[in-house]
């Protein structure tokens, strides 16, 4: 009954343009030309990743000993590597690997970090202290070193890279969400919900979590760039994907011996990593300008 009458009300007001945060966001985000172009680029990459096996012109694993280390040409647009494998096809398959590894690890890290951060900020007290001290401990293995330590324990391989990059993301997400939660907790509507006897879980997810979303969106975007760099660094160091896998970091690592004679083997995958990370960082910058009024500079 209630909801019906509200709907009616909305219809009568809808003569005036209705305020919608999504529309508002879209309007502002489209003005961020650079970030907009970067998003189109990322969408294309996602498409390439999904369609990879269908659009790759050659088999990315199949060696061709008649065409070793060929420079870019009409038949091999990005040249061939030391086994005569088509680099473009390997790049296309690599897009799938890099994007899925980074998406998986960032989202897993986000989910776990968000839950911990929400609980930490909302309940405070000893729980807060335990979670924050644990994240301090994780933080004391700085940056890539935590991921390296985890891979050193679990052994090399792409799955372990995902685990490692996930764990190294958790404390950052937890801190970010905790901060936003502490701020949101002060709102009167949270107090109102509490005084009406709403259960903690409901308050956390219905009232506090939405307040953290905009900072989360910005951070996730930036984090995907970091994750791609971290995963490809681990592979480059020989701790990630196996040597025959068409992963970008692996391609660079196996190609480095041919830098002097066939530099495209190193330059092409490097450009792929660079442009992809750059695109995510540019989107992150654009999102920050739109979503976070505090850091607006113009």
């Amino acid at each position: 009954m209630n909801s019906v009458s509200i709907d009616k009300n909305e219809k009568t007001v809808s003569m005036q343009p209705k305020y919608s945060p999504v529309k508002e966001f879209w309007k502002n985000f489209r003005k961020q030309k650079v970030a907009f172009i970067a998003s189109v680029f990322v969408l294309l990459l996602i498409l390439v990743a999904i369609l990879a096996p269908y659009i790759a012109p050659f088999d990315p694993y199949k060696p061709n000993y008649d065409a070793l280390l060929e420079p870019p040409s009409k038949s091999h647009l990005a040249g061939t590597d030391e086994y005569g494998r088509d680099i473009l096809s390997r790049l296309i398959m690599g897009t799938r690997i890099s994007l899925s590894v980074s998406f998986a690890s960032v989202f897993l890290g986000m989910i776990l970090g968000t839950i911990l951060g929400l609980m930490s900020g909302y309940f405070g007290g000893w729980l807060d202290r335990i979670i924050m001290r644990s994240s301090d401990v994780l933080f004391s293995f700085p940056d890539l070193l935590l991921a390296i330590a985890i891979v050193a324990i679990l052994g090399p391989g792409l799955n372990n890279v995902i685990i490692a990059v996930t764990v190294f993301g958790i404390p950052s997400f937890a801190r970010l969400v905790r901060g936003a939660t502490l701020e949101a907790k002060e709102n009167t509507y949270v107090e109102a919900a509490k005084s009406m006897g709403a259960p903690h879980r409901r308050i956390m997810y219905k009232h506090i979590f939405p307040e953290t979303v905009s900072s989360l969106i910005i951070f996730v975007t930036m984090r995907i760039g970091t994750a791609i760099l971290a995963a490809s660094s681990l592979s480059f160091l020989g701790l990630g994907a196996s040597p025959e896998t068409p992963e970008w970091g692996v391609m660079l690592s196996t190609g480095r011996d041919y830098l002097g004679t066939a530099s495209h083997v190193v330059i092409v995958p490097g450009i792929a990593i660079f442009l992809t990370v750059l695109a995510f960082n540019l989107i992150g910058d654009g999102l920050r300008d739109v979503l976070d009024p505090k850091t607006k500079n113009d």
């Binding site: 660094s233 480059f236 970091g249 660079l252 480095r256 190193v266 990370v277 750059l278 960082n281 910058d285």
Partner: peptide
């Protein structure tokens, strides 16, 4: 922004 997006190992090479 390019500097933070460059893979260190690539720049080194």
């Amino acid at each position: 922004v390019s500097g933070i997006s460059l893979p260190g190992f690539w720049l080194g090479l």
